[in-house]
Structure formats: C-alpha cells, structure tokens
Amino acid sequence: MNKIWIITKRELSSYFDSLMAYIMMFIFLGLSGFFTWWYGSDVFFRNIASLQSFFGVAYWTLFIFIPALTMKQIAEEVKTGTIELLLTKPINDWQVVVGKFMGTFLLVVIALVLTIPYYITIANVGPVDHGGVITGYLGLLLMSAAYISIGIFASSITSNQIVAFLLALIIGIFFQWLFGMLAMAIGGVAGNILIYLDLGGHYDSITRGVIDSKDIIYFASIIFAGLVASEIALVKRNLN
C-alpha cells in the first residue's frame, strides 16, 4: 500500500509540475461554471436550482480529458526506459499500475472537490435535490475511474502517446455509444450483453438516484479489468 502511495504521489506532482493539472482544472471549472451559470439552460434561464447542466458538462469534459491525462502514464515510461528503472525497484507491476491509476483519480477528485462551491451557491439560491447531487458526484467518480483504467490500459500497449490517447478515446466511444447502438440493432442475447456493457446506461441509472449493486459491480469490473490488462501488458516482456 505504501509503495502504491509513493507512485501516486509522484504521478500527482508530475501533473502539477507539467501544467497539465492547471490546464485541466482551468478548462474543467471554466466550462462547467460557464454552462451552469451563464449559458444555455443555466439556472436563471430555467429558474430551477439544479445542478443538471453542471453534471452534463462535467461528464463530457472528463470524457475528453481523461485520455489526455492517462496517455503518457505508461507509454512515456516505456519510451524513455524509465519503466525499467521503476520495475527494478522493490515494487511489482501491479503496484505501479494501481499507483498510476490512483494518481489520475486523485487529480479528478481534486477537480470535483473544487466544484463544491457551485453546489453550495446553487443550494443558497433555491431548494436543491441533495440526494441527486450526491449520486451525480458518485456517477462522475465511477465513470472517471472506469475511463482512467481504460486510458492506462491504452497507454500500456503502445509507446506512442498520441496512439494511446486516440485508442483510449475510441474504446471510450464504444462504451459510451456504440455498444448501446449495436444492442438496439442486434437484439437477442448478444443485444442483452451489449446493453450490459453500455456505460451510459449504468451512469444514468446511478445519477437518477438508484444505487444498484449491479451498476457498482459493472464499474468495479471495468476498473479492475483495465488495470489487470495493463499489468499483463507490462508482464508481457517476459513472454515469448
């Protein structure tokens, strides 16, 4: 656990050292604030104290941003050779992968914590559905964790960051839309499997306020599968 935390700390501080964290926070807070308060169906236009539009914008911003955050995590280490440095220290491949996952996840958590003032101010304007806000945040956290895990996997199978970014985005698009669309087109047993794989559906059911163990298990298994696949990609150096 201690080893994982050492990696997490380094990952997190490297985001802040490289400006990546500030750019991400600036755009994330800026966009979500803009759409919550000023533009389109903002609170004043609809006259309802709700964070609906905030969650919508936050969701899409994170969907695009997470691949950009995860793309370098393993790809760069493989390219510069520092992965060898890391893995010849008393730490195993799994701890490295989990440490990196936690680093990005914490950055997203920090970004979301910084949006709590939106919630507080909106709550002062009018009555807010507090339960809905909590499940909204929970949904964002679970969805982010799933895409971070996918992003790290994409980063672990190539040493090219752009390829890692695009790959993570493409896998994300499958989970976001294509599985759902295919399910409609195919139907039957295969359709049911694809409906289960559709991330959007699980996200919606959580944000609607229904915290079902089925959805939690879904997100947990995507996170776990992504991390295991990344570990396998690292261990692969020993297979012939």
């Binding site: 050492i6 490297s14 050292d17 510069t80 050779g81 520092t82 440095l85």
Partner: peptide, 24 residues
C-alpha cells in the same frame, strides 16, 4: 540501466527522495 533513464522533469533532490522511498 543502460542509457541511464531518468525522470527529466524532476529536480535531482526530489528524484533521489522518490527512489529512496521506493527502495524502502
């Protein structure tokens, strides 16, 4: 290791402290 891979964006002191922590 060969070619001496390093985290180029880290200051020397931070880097040594990171490796020291990893080495226990």
């Amino acid at each position: 290791p060969e070619n001496n891979p390093l985290y180029l964006d880290m200051p020397v002191i931070d880097y040594l402290s990171f490796i020291g922590e990893l080495q226990g």
